[in-house]
Nucleic acid binder design. Structure first.
Lengths: 201, 201
DNA sequence: TTAAAATTTGAACCTTGAGTCAAATTTATT
DNA sequence: AATAAATTTGACTCAAGGTTCAAATTTTAA
């Protein structure tokens, strides 16, 4: 314990700054998801935070950086889910668990999956596409494991993944947390349809 | 046969105009799909057609009208598919047929399913959302018919539809007609996954 | 070959919205 | 209460890109 230690909260400046910056990005991401990147102005973003446009530039280099960080935030969350130890009985169960958590992520937490990657330029776009590719590859691996242990139907794993990841992206587009559908109900439903499609047994 | 009848093609002006206008819209729609509406400038659209920006305004009132007509074009095609007499044995087969044709539409014809409806203003947006809603409702009806005849699992039909329509929208985003995947192969695969999910039997 | 209509163009105009900056205000610390 | 750092602001600049239009060019039909 050195001389600068105090009893009360030390009011960590960096922490405060980081928290506000994060709020800016999350709020903007939500707007991007609903209205689109180009249909959301810096003034819009500032207003919903009770700030003025210029103040945003204290937390962020430019608008594109917000989009970039929005993407990162979503992919970080997905990575975290994918890195959790897989506790399922077989590959299918593992995949279902991951998928359920993806659905929960998009319906419960404020995290948004953005598609407007073409509004990023050069290096940033590459980086985001790389992250997305990495996640896709991980999910494909899960599917292949399930195929190997006999729990998942043999087929082009990549296509299988694209199919249900489409459901995820589309969910992200239409889901409204104010609506009557509970996120968990959707998760149950989606997991079931992921497994068994819509055919009656 | 009246006096104005000729042997050679009569060179129908309106037809010519309509064809060129259609070309403008289809070409633009393709660019919108790949790069996004706001990332595609009027100059971009003009250039790929070998025209100059100003020439576009001979065929089109403004950029938004192109987006509007792009949407209409896709929904017209989907309507046409939905209006074909349903020849399947049961509801599931009917739905599968429609879904297969949707996939073919997006992979074979140049038609693109656009999502950027928020770049339309007021009346146009309403109109497009109404069209989309109408299509969704028709597909939901198909699902409900299948539930009634026992070929489709009982459940929230709306959610079931959103799930596989997501696959369609996502397909539209990633599918590249130059790629190694044949449209028909994708259709087969997707129809199978629509029916039975990914679980091994 | 010619003239009217259709089509295309170059050169502007105009609006929107991102980004900048010096000054004002607020907050933490003494 | 004083002060230095952190934060916010108003007013501005600037570029991008959509839109207009009179004039130039091309096409059709006689």
């Amino acid at each position: 314990m050195n001389a600068s230690a105090t009893i009360k909260a030390p009011f960590d400046r960096d922490k405060q700054f980081a928290a506000k910056r994060r709020a800016v990005i999350l709020s903007a991401a939500s707007a991007f998801r609903r209205r689109g990147y180009h249909n959301t102005s810096m003034v819009d973003i500032a207003k919903t935070l009770g700030l003025t446009k210029a103040a945003l530039y204290y937390y962020v280099r430019n608008k594109e950086e917000i989009l970039f960080e929005s993407h990162l935030m979503a992919y970080d969350s997905m990575d975290k889910i994918l890195k959790r130890p897989q506790s399922g009985e077989d590959g299918l169960e593992n995949l279902a668990n991951v998928f359920r958590e993806f659905v929960s992520l998009l319906t419960q937490s404020g995290v948004s999956l953005l598609t407007d990657v073409d509004s990023l330029s050069g290096k940033s776009r590459e980086q985001i596409l790389a992250r997305r590719g990495k996640i896709e590859r991980r999910v494909i691996k899960l599917v292949k494991a399930g195929q190997k242990d006999g729990s998942i139907r043999i087929g082009d794993a990549r296509l299988q993944v694209f199919f249900f990841m489409g459901a995820l992206n589309w969910l992200n587009a239409w889901y409204d947390s104010e609506g009557r559908l509970k996120g968990d109900d959707i998760a149950d439903h989606f997991v079931e349809q992921l497994r068994s499609g819509i055919m009656a047994e």
